[in-house]
Measured scan of single mutants.
Amino acid sequence: TKIIYHMDEEETPYLVKLPVAPERVTLADFKNVLSNRPVHAYKFFFKSMDQDFGVVKEEIFDDNAKLPCFNGRVVSWL
């Protein structure tokens, strides 16, 4: 699974690849690859589809939650 993530106000996003199927990747999986960053200091928002509003940034805080996936990749903002 490819996860593209944006940090603070930085213009260029980062990319990490996880050896987990897109439909199975969790917030804990993502946090594990960010071990060099203080993950407890961040809120995690993900590109998600809402039936009422369309594409939104959804906050996910449960480490066991599966991450929303679009075209085989996850897009996140920290």
Rank of each mutant, 00 (worst) to 15 (best):
K2L: 14
K2N: 15
I4T: 14
I4R: 04
I4D: 00
Y5F: 12
H6K: 09
H6N: 03
M7H: 03
M7N: 02
E10S: 13
E10F: 05
E11K: 13
E11T: 08
E11Q: 11
E11R: 09
E11F: 04
E11L: 09
T12R: 14
P13S: 13
P13F: 09
P13K: 09
Y14S: 11
Y14A: 07
Y14C: 12
L15F: 14
V16E: 04
V16N: 04
V16P: 01
V16C: 07
V16Q: 03
K17Q: 14
L18K: 03
P19N: 10
A21V: 05
A21S: 11
E23P: 04
V25Y: 05
V25P: 00
V25E: 04
T26G: 01
T26V: 05
T26L: 03
D29H: 11
D29K: 03
F30P: 01
N32E: 11
N32R: 13
V33C: 13
V33D: 00
L34M: 06
S35N: 11
P38C: 07
H40T: 12
Y42T: 06
Y42M: 13
K43A: 06
F46R: 05
F46M: 00
F46P: 00
S48D: 09
M49S: 15
M49E: 10
M49A: 14
D50C: 11
Q51N: 14
Q51S: 13
D52C: 09
D52W: 06
F53D: 15
F53P: 09
G54R: 15
G54D: 13
K57Y: 15
K57A: 13
E58P: 00
E58T: 15
E59I: 01
I60M: 04
I60W: 06
F61G: 12
F61V: 12
F61K: 15
D62S: 09
D62Y: 06
D63R: 03
D63L: 03
D63N: 09
N64D: 08
N64C: 06
A65I: 01
L67H: 03
C69S: 12
N71D: 08
N71R: 09
N71I: 04
N71V: 04
G72C: 02
R73P: 00
R73N: 10
S76I: 02
S76P: 05
